[in-house]
Nucleic acid binder design. Structure first.
Lengths: 359, 359
DNA sequence: TATCGCTCGGAAAGCGCTTGCTTAATGTTG
DNA sequence: CAACATTAAGCAAGCGCTTTCCGAGCGATA
């Protein structure tokens, strides 16, 4: 039964070879024919349903194995209303995503959990933040995915409503700023509290903070932690020592340079993410300052790089993997109609290394 | 026609609410009804086909906009035989993938290109390498994806045949060790040649090399480059200075320690990837050696971290982004029935920084 | 006026699976 | 032995789109 290759030459000049008719070689009907049963029975075998005799089942399974038949997910999805695909919505450009080790850790956690559930991960990034969310909405509506996990953005609020009207389950990684949104986030407040106290305990009184603008809610929480820790020690945050960056190393470098140029430079800097902390260290070194002797630096995230530097970075560990995993677990629970019973606040932890020292 | 919400309480105690019937709210038939036309006409509008009057088209478009209707990709895929999903097969565990900046760069390149083509990226990692490939085969057969890009592994050979029998296009990132496999890879040989010559020119005569085992073909090529460069200078590779790691920083550290314990330690080390090079540097520092004064170190890949260290790493830049992008471009060309006309060998480049110095 | 070529719109047959319902053949009970 | 339950298998109607084909309408051409 070797297929004969025929190249049909059209008058117009286009050539239609059998490359074009990408039809499935085997369908469930073909299997049914080969096994001498009806497609319905084959379907029962494929889905491990009862009411098929052992004999028939064995025969069908043999045919399936021999032909290497795999049922079409498209067709199956159409009648089962499931695609077995989980959408991962990252409302950043791919550049931003891949430059952010913390996001990648979250993604790793989700991917690991997805692997355990016979689900596939569809990655969706975007150019503009809003585009991504509406793209996700389109995906949900268009049945491409069975649900989504999305990373919180500043501009997500107008969309959470729309998302919530969808029947498909979805989970946010971030803060539930609204009603019944399922969300998982780190204990940003607690982490910042610990880090700030750490610096205070080391005798620092001039503590600079580098945040970002506009601030995602997580950074808002970290800043609140800083303020509370300082206030408890009677040290209000000096607003001149509150600078903003954009999460990148370069922005940390700029902020560092700015701080060192101050008439009364701080003795410690708490950068609200690790990459900016690295930038601060670079600028300090460039200005001939020693870390931590002349300047203590603390970061937030604990990216892999933090422990590789010399001296290694003191930072607040934010377990991205666990966050991603928890979000994915929650998602699958919702998908199975079960309650969203996962830890929604993931603890953070202060990791004291080499970049923080006595004032 | 408001649906009436009925909660049916089963004797068994389970509650079936209308949460369960996740049916689409809007279908093409609904739109057709609202616009007073047939579904066929709506389909023409959705697919931007001719033979619909401007008036009718406008009316249908208005209804679509008002209802926020998005056609079901499942159904569309079934009849169009397209899923608009590209499978990315990474035959590594997610741990390995996310620990490898070079792989992530490749992924970024693919993702960037995918975004330009209205395609979605389905990520597929695995536990065992072979599993991944057969999983990919299943995906192709099951119509989940329209084709795939996969990263070469050692064990891929037995599968390339199977993949090639599939009608769906696929592209490999790695070396085409066989017939008509479409592949994209870096100029590993040339890069290694340059790096080795660089060390020789600096006066090094005792050059150690850290490879991995088992060796992917790319590393085979790099090693060949090293051998040729050394041979040209009449310096055969001292096999005692050829160590193996597993790509990780830790393995580089172990290899470094081993080299430094040698009676005649090398004056330079060429690690065939950056992470192992970083490990060598760490172990050198731990042994009280200075880099590059006491030991020159050169890596391969040019991961982001390489330029951040102090001193920054001398390395061979392997443009992962460009490789991923080229592979994806080739893939889309094949998908459109066009020839695979992309550069298949991506040039590498020696980046001289601070970790290599005079012998 | 008869013929042609074109546009516009719809009927209906898929795409490849699942599933509710039906029927026939068993086994089980009083 | 009649009445019933249970198993085994199949028919056929979907799932929500696309697409081929067909016919109606209409102006242009002969």
């Amino acid at each position: 039964m070797t297929p004969i290759r025929i190249a049909v030459v059209d008058v117009g000049g286009t050539v239609a070879s059998d490359d074009d008719n990408k039809q499935r070689m085997t369908t469930i009907d073909e299997i049914a024919r080969l096994a001498g049963v009806s497609p319905a029975t084959v379907s029962k075998v494929l889905n491990n349903r009862p009411y098929v005799s052992d004999l028939t089942r064995a025969r069908i399974e043999r045919v399936i194995a021999e032909t290497g038949f795999v049922p079409s997910q498209r067709a199956r999805g159409l009648s089962q209303r499931r695609s077995y695909i989980l959408g991962l919505l990252i409302p950043y450009t791919s550049d931003e995503l891949f430059a952010d080790p913390h996001l990648l850790e979250i993604m790793r956690g989700i991917e690991a959990e997805t692997n355990c559930h016979e689900y596939n991960l569809l990655l969706s990034t975007s150019r503009a933040a809003l585009d991504a969310v509406s793209a996700c909405l389109r995906m949900l509506r268009s049945d491409v995915i069975d649900g989504a996990i999305m990373v919180e953005t500043l501009d997500i609020l107008p969309y959470t409503d729309a998302l919530s009207t969808q029947a498909a389950p979805w989970v946010m990684i971030g803060y539930p700023r609204q009603g019944d949104v399922r969300a998982v986030h780190a204990d940003d407040y607690g982490g910042a509290l610990l880090a700030t106290r750490h610096l205070i305990n080391l005798g620092h009184r001039h503590i600079a903070v580098i945040t970002s603008t506009p601030r995602p809610f997580a950074l808002e929480e970290r800043l609140r932690g800083v303020r509370d820790a300082l206030a408890t020690s009677g040290l209000p945050l000096d607003e001149r020592l509150l600078l903003t960056g954009d999460f990148s190393i370069e922005s940390g470098e700029r902020a560092g340079a700015q701080l060192l140029a101050l008439p009364e430079p701080p003795s410690a800097v708490f950068a609200l993410n690790d990459r900016m902390a690295l930038g601060v260290i670079r600028s300090a070194l460039a200005h001939g300052k020693r870390v931590p002797e002349d300047l203590s630096v603390v970061g937030f995230d604990d990216i892999a790089l933090a422990s590789l530097l010399n001296p290694a970075l003191t930072t607040v560990r934010q377990p991205g993997f666990a966050m991603g995993q928890a979000a994915a677990r929650g998602f699958f629970a919702l998908l199975d109609g079960q309650p969203f019973a996962v830890p929604t606040v993931i603890p953070t932890e202060l990791i004291v290394r080499g970049t923080s020292g006595k004032a």
